[in-house]
Design a protein around this nucleic acid. Structure first.
Lengths: 339, 339
DNA sequence: ATGAAAGCGCTAACAA
DNA sequence: TTGTTAGCGCTTTCAT
């Protein structure tokens, strides 16, 4: 910038004004400076700018698993909205590990990101460092118990309820669930939805029908095997996340059980290629991209809003509805169920 | 830092020394400062540090499609290695758009990232801004024609050759390919491998057996339909990327054609859930995570290496081998092919 | 309308 | 061994 100023024969202050589009510059000068900018291939140093302005135009996004299509879809939404509003995003993976999460947040904080988007069941790690300072943060998907701030999430209870209700409507009476760790809000809510739907239909829920996975593919496979080998196996399975659904399908193929003829499968989370599966997967689809977009929007609002929100005790919460996508993996129960 | 210094009754220089682990500090002082650090919950301001040091400990990663499992797996590798070495990564999506790519690079440059990892078929956008200044950059996966710098890529020719050879070995004589835009190095190489394998087996390659997709799911579906409707349809299809393979499988299911009984499918790129498919997918698996790790390693080397590489004209190139994972979507051709 | 200069938080060279 | 200080490149207030 110094060089540019010299080349154009003006002061750095003036160059800065031009770069930032201040209108108080004489057109003649402005043109001369523009040329110098061009000539020297000048790129503003955002680091210096950030230091002065105390804003980095960067936000951190912390997710438990970057390779999970759900989170990458959300990230996609975040990225797009961020770009629209002039924010870059630093992606951090915690691998479902609390230590990692703490470290990542600390790093982000040191980098002075303007805000954080996070999916985490643990409030403390974040509360610690971030909320205490009224730091802009919005939780998405997984909301820690007791958290009262900004968040965007799916109505998991309703989604699960409707999913199971659909299964029951098809005629199923033996419906099992593959859930996850109960301390995750998403899991607890989906479980509640499942229980309520079963209860409303006056259907029993034998203990073994409730399987606990860990949201990874392998656990879906294992839980699936468990379920299929039961003396009285379910005729329909509701799987609480995308990866576990995939694992479950693997188990079903391996056991040479026919879906949906012998067993129905309804998965949580849709993905582009759910319709490429054989059978095409019936899913309860979350609005992944929209979740990211909306979370980013909310975060930027928080960052840029001059008024720190009067009703500060209660944050904004956006609740997204999931949508049932009926395809071919669900059907009425077989007249003669397996075993 | 100023406050910390005052609290501990020392100068900022000393605090800086402690924070950076310089060993020339008296233990007593060090302890007092450590306590002050703790008491004030001090987090070093990396922005200021970056400005002073002219290093941000941040790299940019530019990919055509963040939602593609291939790139997210690579990103995962990048993230892990980056963390190990103290680098954060800013993820940028270009959506296969050259304009976008240019913009993203410009932003990254303004943010003074220490280096860039990029998958792009277009050298110019990158060359422009980055290579000209001997800026640390390593290409991965897609390498622009004529590029001579650092890169990590799969041996696509060999991979495709072996894939098609396997199909031929199974007895197939009518093998089709679903490729992509030819200006992509990966596509050209895989195509060459296919042709060579066919040629070596003295098998004909009718023009309609070469389908051109765009690496998106939908195009795999469309190309698949095209192929299946041919008067003399292939008995095996080699699909050049993961998403197109998925689309192809969708077409096959929809047409109620049985795979592998009536048609064999071999896809490029593996993913965790390829084994959950019905049938379990045979794939030519690239080392995605390793590609990311290796690219990051190479980039950090470039960034931190004090000597700017004597043989500067020719960059390092890491070539990864793909591995054939035989599952159930491939089988000998049917005795009575469709139509 | 433009220039001069202070200072954002940090590091490192130099002084003590 | 520790303190002092000059910038890193930018923005912005205050003079002019």
């Amino acid at each position: 910038m110094h060089d540019v100023a010299r080349l154009a024969g003006v002061s750095v202050g003036t160059v800065s004004a031009v770069v930032n589009g201040h209108t108080t510059i004489r057109p003649k000068l402005r043109k001369r400076i523009d040329e110098a900018l061009r000539a020297l291939d000048y790129h503003p140093n955002q680091i210096a700018r950030s230091l002065k302005l105390q804003r980095t135009q960067t936000i951190g996004m912390v997710v438990p698993d970057v390779a999970n299509p759900f989170f990458t879809s959300v990230a996609h939404g975040v990225e797009m909205e961020g770009q629209r509003r002039g924010y870059s995003v630093i992606l951090c993976n915690t691998n479902e590990d609390l230590q990692q999460e703490r470290r990542q947040l600390s790093i982000l904080f040191s980098r002075r990101v303007d805000g954080v988007l996070i999916s985490s069941s643990n409030y403390d790690a974040a509360k610690d460092r971030l909320t205490r300072r009224r730091f802009p943060i919005v939780f998405f998907d997984r909301i820690p118990p007791g958290y009262r701030g900004d968040a965007v999430l799916t109505d998991n209870f309703s989604a699960a309820y409707r999913a199971v209700q659909y299964l029951i409507g098809l005629g199923h009476r033996r419906v099992a669930i593959i859930a996850g760790a109960l301390d995750l809000s998403v899991v607890a809510d989906r479980m509640d939805g499942y229980r309520k739907a079963m209860q409303d239909a006056e259907l029993p829920v034998p203990a073994p029908y409730i399987q606990r996975g860990d949201f990874k593919l392998q656990s879906g496979y294992l839980c699936g095997l468990e379920l299929l080998r039961l003396p009285a196996p379910p005729t329909a399975i509701f799987s609480c996340n995308n990866l576990m659904t995939l694992g479950l399908m693997g188990a079903i193929v391996e056991q040479k059980i026919s879906c949906p003829d012998q067993i129905s499968v309804l998965g949580f989370d849709d993905f582009d290629w759910a319709a490429s599966f054989n059978p095409r997967l019936t899913t309860m689809a979350q609005q992944m991209c929209e979740m990211g977009r909306s979370a980013m929007e909310m975060l930027v609002e928080r960052i840029e809003s001059p008024i720190p929100e009067p009703d500060s005790e209660q944050g904004h919460v956006v609740v997204l509805e999931a949508e049932l996508r009926i395809r071919d993996s669900t059907a009425p129960p077989p007249s003669n169920p397996i075993s």
